[in-house]
Design a protein around this nucleic acid. Sequence first.
DNA 1: GTTGGGTTTTCCGACGTTGTAAAGTCGCTG
DNA 2: CAGCGACTTTACAACGTCGGAAAACCCAAC
Lengths: 337, 337
Amino acid sequence: MSATMHDVARVAGVSIKTVSNVVNDFPHVRPSTRQRVLDAIDTLGYRPNLAARGLRSGKSGVIALIIPDLRNAYFAELADSVMRAAAKRNLAVFIQQIGGGREEEIATLRGQRMTAVDGILYSVLALGEDDIDLLQISTPLVLLGESIFNAPNDHVTMENVEGVRAATDHLISIGCRRIVALGVHPGEVIGSAGLRLDGYRQALANAGITFDDDLLCVSGSWHRSNGAAAMRDFLGRGVPFDGVVAFNDAMALGAMRVIQESGLRVPDDVAIIGFDDIDETRYSLPTLSSVDPGRDAIAEEAVRLLCERIDQETELVPPRLAMPASRVIRRESTTRS
Amino acid sequence: MSATMHDVARVAGVSIKTVSNVVNDFPHVRPSTRQRVLDAIDTLGYRPNLAARGLRSGKSGVIALIIPDLRNAYFAELADSVMRAAAKRNLAVFIQQIGGGREEEIATLRGQRMTAVDGILYSVLALGEDDIDLLQISTPLVLLGESIFNAPNDHVTMENVEGVRAATDHLISIGCRRIVALGVHPGEVIGSAGLRLDGYRQALANAGITFDDDLLCVSGSWHRSNGAAAMRDFLGRGVPFDGVVAFNDAMALGAMRVIQESGLRVPDDVAIIGFDDIDETRYSLPTLSSVDPGRDAIAEEAVRLLCERIDQETELVPPRLAMPASRVIRRESTTRS
DNA sequence: GTTGGGTTTTCCGACGTTGTAAAGTCGCTG
DNA sequence: CAGCGACTTTACAACGTCGGAAAACCCAAC
């Protein structure tokens, strides 16, 4: 039973609309009136009802961030960046996890909750290019990630190809010649796995190193445990190698542990580099080199594009694609003495 | 411009209230009418407007989760658990970070956004027992954590004392006699740091081991880097030790790395145990023993208590305190060969 | 063919806010 | 002192939904 504008108006002895004018900083309010209203607001502890405001204005001041899993450090850090970028624009962020695959993903997009939101940042996981029609919704939507291209939406992605190419170049530059690619998804062309594999191939080609199928390490979902398992498998095969490009940091950390357990030294026997530059890379033993995809820039850009669509400043502008710069962060796992 | 009940009513040839009755499963609707309405809903792609519903009902179907920092794995995992528990009850979770200390914390609690929410789960960070009045708000609020006790709210906490006592017991049982306590906040009595230190002292006393000030390691905020820094300091002092109880996993991981760098072996020279049982403990080298505080149970219980307050099933019930059971999880960092 | 009872549907208003447009106030000019 | 414009304030309606009560309908029983 909190106070409403009505109550404030009564206490201040003005009309309800005048209260609204004060609350919304409408310019033509006499200073004395304004003060009277502010006092009343204070005594009553009045705070505007966002549901009513939302109903009236058609805006909620909330954007959704749809991500696969908060327990994945990259997405937790992304969520943090997005919340900061949104806060600058007075927007709240509603985080929605979609761990459950295609069906759940579609249900979430279609869900009621998504209609109550001014815009959506959607980090696609399970959908593919065939599902582009699903993205044709009335709520502004900006895509994140690399599962879908050519959708009718703005899209913020990262330098997957360039980043992994640079990472691979880096390994080559410190003397690696038999480099494992960890996190391969066979048959995938676009998508993070496909693009990153492409970067790996390009770097090898540039350096004149023959591509070797035996050095590809498949790992379904990119969790630490899968990185560890895939590396354990690989070691079991006895294929010689001297470097690892992992397609994300979690797998790199899992793999690094298995490699060390097997008696190999990092970086001297095997150099390792990951991707994402999550916080943990700074505290592993050894610290993990990685590719910083420009997380803050991605969040900032995504929120900016979304806001422009929400404010309809860009009604006729065709879909835009942003790709902040990445950079290789060299740490101990690729620094040979 | 999505369709409203009005549009559905027109298409189905019924009144708007009938549509409402169908949507809300009101019992007395003729099957044929219901079908007609459902068809209309389908053709128009109608979805209820949550703002309007919220205004009308005074409920939003959203609860807030206020936590210090998503980048902290414990809180990211807690958020995940809470979202799952809330989803079972058809509630959405609005995550709010409060990194900025006391002022920001108060502002957040007071903020408009918190009025638009049916209930609040508040993991207190910067407030203390003196701020109990701030928790006297009209929105149901359940406390998490251990900064404040005796507040007029339901409270879900964890076995801080018992957990660390058991962890310390465990170290003692494998032969440790000079055990470092990492993460001490000097002068703190309640609060995680104070309680956990208490558990440490109790275990020593039980075992007849003399408490030694020199073995206390102060670490302000419980991040990995602070754990590493505090341990580096400690090693510099040259105090002999053979075990570490870290008051959380992040510090334990940071410290473990520094210890290993210094040439000491874990667990043979120094055994280490953390607290929180975050995912990462399973993938460090060596894997990290920890105290599982019962995160899922905490989330489940917190949401349950909050829902009861929201539904006013417990109007006259005094504040309740829940404390799910903890348990020591033994991993490599405390397993001596 | 009327009555009675239950079932089904409609009508009306309210939730709290804000846009629009109209009304009111004030000081100053001619 | 009427008239004008600029500044203030107000009245009203509408946003989409749902609770309550009234109305309409249907069928069976008398």
